[in-house]
Design a protein around this nucleic acid. Structure first.
Lengths: 244, 244
DNA sequence: GGCGTCCCTGTAAGTAATTGCAGCTGTAAT
DNA sequence: ATTACAGCTGCAATTACTTACAGGGACGCC
C-alpha cells in the first residue's frame, strides 16, 4: 500500500522548504489527512520566535492556541519532548477524566481543536542530532476508525522521521555541527568540565597538571570554533562528542 | 500482520532489562531475525565503558569488531548518529565500490560480519531526550528478500522506538533530568551564556545590570541541582531547556 | 492584608578562567 | 631523518565567575 523506500527518496529530492511542503501534503492527503504540521526547536518559553514550522493547521486555531498559552498545557508537546513513541490524540468518545483541573483544561483544548477542523490526529516525536527535537502531526477533519488509524501508525512514524531528516536541513539556526576532530584528551577534559569540575580537579583526575587541562580545553575550544569554555561545552554536547 | 499498539504495551510491561530482552527476542524472532542489538550512549572514543547494550551478536564477532576498531569505521554508526532514517545493510550482491581505501575496508567489514552469521540486517537510529542516541539493529543469519525486508521497515522502525522508550530507563548514567521549573529570565540567561557571552554582555543584551544576570544564573544553577555555570549549561541542554 | 514568586540591584573578597610567553617528550608518517 | 602532531608543563597578567552580605518593587492569589 505504501512504499517506504520510494517515499524516502521522494523526500530526499526536495530542495526547498516549499517543495518539501508540497510533497508532504501529497503524501498526507493520500493517507487521508487534510492537515499536517512539522515543528522543530519548539520553545519552552512561549513565543513563536526561533521555532521552525512547516505545513499548518487552520490559522484561526493556531492563533487561538498561542493566545490561550496551550503550549504549556498541551500533553502532545510534553509527550513528544520526553518520548519517542507516537501519540494518538484522544478521540471523541473518551469520557472526560476525573475532576482534575489540568485534565479538564486539556479536554477543553482537544474539543476546541475539533471545532477548528482537527478531529482524529496523531503526533510523532522526532529527535535528532544536537538535542534538537520537534514533532510531526497528522490530522483529519472527519473521524477515522481506530483500526484504520492504528494500521497507519508504523507508516506515519517512519514517514515523520524521513521528513525530519530532510526538514531539519531547512530549519534556521544551529550551524552545521561540523564534527571537528578532537583528540581523546580534549574530549575527556570537555566531559569533566561539563560535569562541573574545575581545571585543577580535572588535572587530579587525569593525573596531569592543571595547566595541561587548560591547554587541552583551549585547543578544543578553538577547534570547535567558539570562544569560551562554556560555548565549547554547548557545542560539544550538540555535536554529540560528549554525553554528560 | 503486526499490531503495533499491542507491542508497545507488551514492551511497557517489562520491568527489568532481562524481561525486556526476552520480549524483544520473541518479537524479533517472529519477524525472522535471529540477532538483534540495542545500543545506547555509544562512545565516540572507542572503549566499551559507559555504553549500554542489550541483546547481542555472536560474541566472537563483537570481539573482532572491537579489536579491529570498527567503531570508527562502521558506516552504520556514523549514519545513526546523524540521521533518523533506517539503514539497510549492504547486501551480498552489491559489487564492491570503487577503489577508495575506506570503502574497501567497509566492504571487508560487512563480509566478515556475514561469516559470523550476520547476513541481512537493518539498523535504526534512536534519539531521545538529553542528547542520548543509540541504535537498534536486526540481523538475519540467512539472506532475506529485498522485498520482504522493505515491507518490514516501517514496523521495525516503530518497534525500535518503542524499545528505546522502555530500554533507556534501564541504561545507567544520566540521572532523570527532573525538568526543573526555571523562569523565563533564567532560561534566557542560560541561553546566552551557552552561546559564550559573559555576564556583562548578557546584561547589555537584556538591559539589566551584570549583577542581575549573575543572580539569575545562580538561581538556575541551584534549581538544576548542579554547581557551576558550566554544569548548568550541560544540564539545561540535556533537559531540553535551551537549544543553542 | 499577608504570602509567595519573580525580577531587579549593590558591595566585596575569594576563586577560577583566559591568554600570552616559552619549552619539553614521544610516536608515526614521508 | 626531518616533519607533524599529540601530549605535556611552567609563569604571569588580566578578566570573569562564585559566593555571601544586604536590599526594594511589582504582581497574583487566598
Amino acid at each position: 500500500m505504501f512504499n517506504a523506500i520510494a517515499n524516502i527518496e521522494l523526500l530526499q529530492l526536495c530542495e526547498t522548504s516549499e517543495q518539501l511542503a508540497t510533497t508532504i501534503s501529497g503524501l498526507a492527503g493520500k493517507l487521508g489527512f487534510e492537515h499536517w504540521m512539522y515543528g522543530l526547536d519548539l520553545p519552552v518559553i512561549d513565543d513563536r520566535k526561533q521555532q521552525y514550522m512547516l505545513g499548518g493547521y487552520p490559522p484561526e486555531w493556531v492563533d487561538h492556541y498561542f493566545v490561550s498559552e496551550y503550549l504549556r498545557l498541551d500533553p502532545v508537546i510534553a509527550h513528544c519532548q520526553a518520548h519517542s513513541t507516537p501519540l494518538l490524540w484522544p478521540s471523541t468518545n473518551t469520557p472526560p477524566p476525573n475532576t482534575d483541573k489540568r485534565n479538564r483544561a486539556v479536554w477543553r483544548m482537544f474539543n476546541e481543536a475539533r471545532e477548528f477542523g482537527l478531529d482524529s490526529g496523531i503526533s510523532i516525536p522526532v529527535h535528532g542530532l544536537g538535542c534538537r527535537w520537534g514533532l510531526m502531526s497528522f490530522a483529519a477533519k472527519t473521524p477515522m476508525s481506530s483500526q484504520d488509524l492504528q494500521d497507519l501508525v508504523p507508516h506515519l512514524h517512519l514517514l515523520a522521521h524521513c521528513i525530519h531528516d530532510v526538514g531539519r536541513r531547512y530549519a534556521p539556526g544551529v550551524a552545521p555541527p561540523a564534527t571537528a576532530h578532537l583528540t581523546a584528551r580534549e574530549i575527556e577534559c570537555l566531559h569533566w568540565v561539563a560535569a562541573g569540575k574545575t581545571s585543577w580537579e580535572i588535572g587530579r583526575l587525569l593525573s596531569v597538571a592543571e595547566r595541561t587541562v587548560v591547554f587541552h580545553l583551549q585547543n578544543a575550544t578553538q577547534k570547535l570554533g567558539v570562544s569560551g569554555r562554556q560555548a565549547a561545552i554547548a557545542r560539544a554536547i550538540v555535536a554529540g562528542l560528549i554525553t554528560p
